[in-house]
């Protein structure tokens, strides 16, 4: 009886070990999948986060367009402090959704760490452009372009334009 009990205990331990190993394997595999799913930073350095918004049809509504600048980079705000710097500007098509007004966020002060440096007015991380729109009933595409110019602490990339397409659902 003792022999059988000890054999059963041994088998039980083995099964528990097997179960633990399977769980650990599963965890490792899950971590790996998570790594693979990370989106690499784009060369454009700015991305549009908004893709669809719901508004009341036929009424003037506030809509936020959310953008994100890659970590380590900045773009000039809509009102840079130097006349030669290129401001961030959104140009929207008039078709479909009527855009009544655009409001850009205030930039943050950023000192370029070169020599004595210079103070810039920039957007970093996430920033939001507020629009007042009147949308018809149903789904309409709000489209346009965001013009900006990105730099990091020591170098700048040429001015770029980012296509903007957001579905506005008028309900």
């Amino acid at each position: 009886m003792q022999g059988i009990g000890s054999k059963e205990q041994g088998t039980g331990r083995s099964l528990r070990l097997l179960a633990a190993a399977v769980l650990v394997c599963g965890a490792l595999q899950a971590q790996q999948i998570d790594m693979g799913a990370k989106k690499p930073a784009g060369r454009d350095h700015v991305e549009l986060l908004s893709d669809a918004v719901d508004v009341a049809a036929g009424k003037t509504q506030d809509v936020e367009l959310r953008f994100r600048v890659d970590p380590g980079f900045h773009i000039n705000s809509h009102t840079p402090m130097d006349e030669f710097l290129i401001p961030t500007k959104l140009t929207l098509d008039g078709a479909g959704v009527k855009v009544v007004s655009e409001e850009y966020p205030a930039g943050v002060k950023f000192k370029l760490p070169i020599g004595e440096g210079t103070i810039l007015d920039v957007y970093q991380g996430e920033f939001r452009v507020m629009l007042r729109v009147v949308a018809p009933k149903g789904a309409t595409t709000l489209s346009g372009m965001l013009r900006y110019q990105a730099c990091d602490n020591a170098a700048c990339f040429p001015p770029r334009t980012l296509g903007v397409k957001v579905t506005v659902n008028g309900r």
Binding site: F84, L85, I114, L120, Q149, C151, A154, A155, C156
Partner: peptide, 14 residues
């Protein structure tokens, strides 16, 4: 360099 490049304008006096 370019007129829109902040780092350029900081090194040019050097």
């Amino acid at each position: 360099w370019a007129t829109w490049c902040g780092p350029c304008k900081l090194e040019m006096p050097w």
